[in-house]
């Protein structure tokens, strides 16, 4: 079977899988990004069972990463668990929305032994708590951090830099658009 044939099978597999998941776990949003990548959104409390089901019954044994997207305008974090099925060569992203106030989430450390590293990072970078995850309160990459978690959208790294680290005299930062307009297309002028 060539690659194209494999792709077709995968697409069908993904569609069936998403239907199954929707039935079983009430996934409220399914998004097919490409042939071998789909995103599902599940409820916060159903996440663990959904991941468990995907891992044990559907062959999604590999956890690629766990990440968070910060939707500050709408007031929630979107957690993203990216799983991979080696037999079908398909990725599935399981997403959960959690509130931005006192965010906390169930630990998935008992499902994947590497889970605690991601949770430790998210705790430090976003302040999301994972009760029961090993060493989740320890410092991960930062040391002696005294502000709000740095990856939050409201954290302004440029301003923080100005306050904390001295600027070298003579260094200028330019607006790239203006500079390119002036240097590359001077005849166009303001457009």
């Amino acid at each position: 079977m060539g690659y194209a044939g494999l792709q077709l099978v995968n697409t069908m597999f993904m569609q069936e899988l998403c239907e199954r998941m929707t039935r079983q776990f009430d996934c409220d949003q399914v998004m097919h990004q490409k042939d071998d990548l789909s995103f599902l959104r599940v409820d916060r409390d159903r996440l663990e069972s959904a991941l468990m089901y995907l891992k044990t019954h559907e062959g999604f044994v590999h956890l690629s990463f766990v990440t968070v997207i910060d939707y500050i305008e709408d007031g929630f974090f979107r957690l993203n668990y990216m799983l991979y099925n080696y037999d079908k060569a398909t990725n599935i992203g399981v997403q959960v929305d959690i509130t931005r106030e006192n965010p906390s989430m169930h630990s998935i450390h008992h499902l994947w032994a590497q889970g605690w590293t991601y949770q430790r990072e998210l705790k430090e970078m976003y302040g999301i708590d994972f009760p029961g995850s090993p060493r989740v309160d320890e410092e991960f990459v930062l040391e002696g951090w005294d502000g709000i978690p740095p990856m939050l959208r409201e954290f302004d790294t440029a301003k923080f830099c100005e306050d904390r680290f001295a600027k070298r005299d003579g260094r200028e930062s330019q607006d790239i658009k203006q500079t390119m307009r002036d240097n590359l297309y001077p005849e166009r002028g303001e457009s």
Partner: peptide, 19 residues
């Protein structure tokens, strides 16, 4: 190390080493 270079606005890297 001189002025931060590409990381001039990074919250975790220093900008002027000679300070």
């Amino acid at each position: 190390t001189i002025n931060g270079g590409m990381y001039y606005d990074s919250y975790n890297t220093i900008n002027c080493l000679d300070r």
